[in-house]
């Protein structure tokens, strides 16, 4: 039994105007990782290295036990990859693509493919060039899912989908996870999708991983405290505070190391804790990125 489906150790890649710097990434088998970053943060470069499409300058990458890029041919038999810039043959039909893919991958599941055609509301006889953006994404997903790969790597799978299609796609991704030997890595800037279905979450910004943890830990450790201070007193010093907003006697503290003992500390200092807000993943991501950029910028 292999514990990690994806394992990056100290991976770097230098370009003229962009560096991917010392990336460490561990994705346990049987889980979903959401990979979140702004445009140009390094998500796609990381995914290309994972797929062996780009060779790292330093560090080791293991995918499904195979060293990348050296053993990419063996690894790719068991990886399904869907990206936005994926090119299907415009003049061919979805049906033709299904035949083509099934001839190359012995694990192709035709019954599952037929089910996905109905779920995703696709027409096999339609040519790719006549499909909308959303239909193309769903067609590419179908071709990857029906191969039953052990690892699915999806670059922005829900971007440009309408709400109904998005729901179907998220549902199918979760259905994959019903099998504990299968694993998904997906990048997105839709934090709501990531928050809903991910087990592991990784934030990337400017070529560096700024945080990576399981989702429950993320949501548990970040809190916004709204305080009412007595006159002429200072804001209490609490662990993990990365931002102090609000005004004079009504400060709003954002911490990434919340524990309930903090509330007692505040009260002992004479402050009233007016509210303890949990934060959405989007708020957490934005706070992390801003904090990191402020502390790194000179």
């Amino acid at each position: 039994m292999m514990d990690l489906t994806v394992d990056f150790k100290g991976v770097s890649k230098r370009y003229a105007h962009f560096n991917l710097d010392n990336i460490n990434l561990e994705l346990p088998t049987g889980s979903i990782m959401g990979f979140i970053g702004a445009n140009g943060a390094g998500k796609s470069t990381t995914i290309r290295i994972l797929m062996g499409l780009v060779h790292q300058d330093a560090g080791t990458v293991k995918v499904l036990g195979h060293a990348m890029p050296a053993e990419q041919a063996a690894a790719k038999m068991d990886i399904g990859f869907v990206s936005e810039d994926m090119r299907l043959y415009a003049a061919a039909t979805l049906h033709w693509h299904m035949n083509f893919v099934s001839s190359m991958f012995p694990k192709w599941d035709q019954a599952y493919a037929d089910k996905l055609i109905r779920r995703f509301d696709l027409k096999p006889q339609q040519k790719i060039k006549g499909l909308s953006h959303g239909q193309r994404v769903k067609a590419a997903l179908l071709l990857a899912l029906a191969r039953k790969p052990r690892l699915l790597v999806l670059d922005e799978p829900t971007t440009g989908l309408d709400p109904v299609a998005r729901r179907e796609v998220l549902g199918e991704l979760m259905a994959v996870l019903a099998d504990e030997d299968r694993t998904i890595l997906f990048s997105s800037h839709n934090t709501q999708d990531v928050e809903q279905i991910s087990d592991q979450i990784t934030f990337i910004d400017r070529g560096k991983i700024i945080d990576s943890d399981n989702k429950e830990a993320f949501l548990d450790q970040w809190r916004r405290l709204r305080l009412v201070l007595p006159q002429n007193s200072e804001v209490p010093r609490l662990p993990g505070v990365i931002d102090v907003g609000g005004s004079g006697r009504l400060p709003v503290l954002t911490t990434n190391r919340f524990d309930p003992g903090m509330l007692t500390v505040c009260q002992d200092l004479g402050a009233t804790v007016q509210a303890v807000d949990s934060m959405t993943l989007e708020e957490i991501f934005v706070s992390s990125v801003q904090h990191r950029r402020e502390t790194v910028a000179v």
């Binding site: 889980s31 979903i32 259905a175 996870l177």
Partner: peptide, 10 residues
């Protein structure tokens, strides 16, 4: 998790 479309860890 699958039927709620919510992560396994949750």
């Amino acid at each position: 998790a699958v039927s709620l479309r919510v992560s396994v860890i949750t």
